[in-house]
Computed example of a mutant assay.
Amino acid sequence: MRIVFMGTPEFAVPSLRALLGSGLGDVVGVVTQPDRPVGRKRVLTPPPVKVEAEKHALPVLQLERLRRPEAVEALREWRPDLIVTAAFGQILPKAVLDLPRLGCINVHASLLPKYRGGAPIHYAVMNGDAVTGVTIMYMAEGLDTGDMISKIEVPIGDDDTTGTMFRKLSEAGAQLLLDTLPGLLAGTVTAVPQNEAEAVYAPNITREQERIDWSRSAEEIWNLTRALHPRPGAYTLWNGDVLKIWKAAKPAGAAAPAGAAPGTVLAAGERGIDVATGRGVLTVLEVQPAGKKAMAAAALARSGQLKPGTVLGS
């Protein structure tokens, strides 16, 4: 069996490694996104999947747009029996979907039809879900709309962030891929259509979503900080500058004092910084003032710069 793998970020690397070690077929080529500038110095950096592919001397295509005729023709020359994608970042056009005789399958980091789209892990954490998972599905022309082949559930703990869940789900997805492929090759899998009435979308996170709305509950803001860790980070404004909120404690249910406006610093000490929210109190544990490195909130409190009575958000 000739397999073409498509993926871009670190999430996809375990699935590529699983295919290479499975003995179920030959990975004849890898498709990924172009190198992108990364970091403050904007250093041109290859995607993790390209780095992994080159370790194994695999042919690599870096395609800005898969819909271009020359891209489809390049894939056709590889004569794939199966295309496997994982966090590739582009919707496959019909011309590509029709190429492999066994179809195109995707390793998607959610329990479909919940969280279709580019940020399924972020939304699962942001919404306070207790469990998420991975779905392997046949690909269709829509956004994550294809029939589902297999699933695995993965719990989300209180200490989990989007970063930890990326690692857990990438490994779970790789194992699920190995468990699913033999039945797919034998023609014994039964694909189940998605229930469109239950579809939930998870579009890419916007800058506005990163900004903390202190009128929301402490629980919701805590989930937001976890969802945006390790990047891009939740933020608020302090004296007109960005203050990143990297970590907060799980709210214990304490009520804010009557009359305290959301965003008001109630206390600043060795425990951290207590902030009034629309419902409850959030204890901030790790922050990053503009132009500085991340630090314990207690260190900022000790500096005396952020005093009780300060109102965050402006």
Rank of each mutant, 00 (worst) to 15 (best):
I83A: 00
L306W: 05
G291Q: 09
A140H: 06
K114I: 07
A294G: 11
W222F: 15
W222T: 10
L75D: 07
I212D: 08
K114R: 15
P113L: 01
E219D: 09
S303M: 06
L178H: 07
I136G: 01
P232W: 00
E219P: 00
A109Y: 05
V131I: 07
A276E: 14
Q305G: 09
V265G: 04
A191F: 03
R279F: 03
G253Q: 10
T135P: 06
G291K: 08
K94N: 00
G118Y: 02
G25V: 11
Q90D: 06
I3Q: 02
I273A: 03
A140S: 15
R226K: 14
P9I: 02
L16M: 08
V49T: 14
K168R: 12
V4R: 02
A227N: 07
A172G: 12
D98Q: 14
V242S: 06
A254C: 00
G157P: 02
E77W: 09
Y115K: 02
G304F: 14
V275A: 00
E70K: 06
P9M: 01
G313A: 11
V125L: 09
L177F: 12
L99A: 03
L300G: 05
P155T: 09
M1P: 05
V189C: 07
R167D: 13
T8Q: 05
A249F: 05
A86I: 04
T236N: 05
M165K: 04
V51I: 15
T190Y: 01
D81A: 03
L61R: 13
T310C: 13
A12I: 08
A260T: 10
R226H: 11
P203Y: 11
G280M: 01
A267S: 15
T283N: 12
E153M: 08
P9R: 01
G240W: 08
V131M: 04
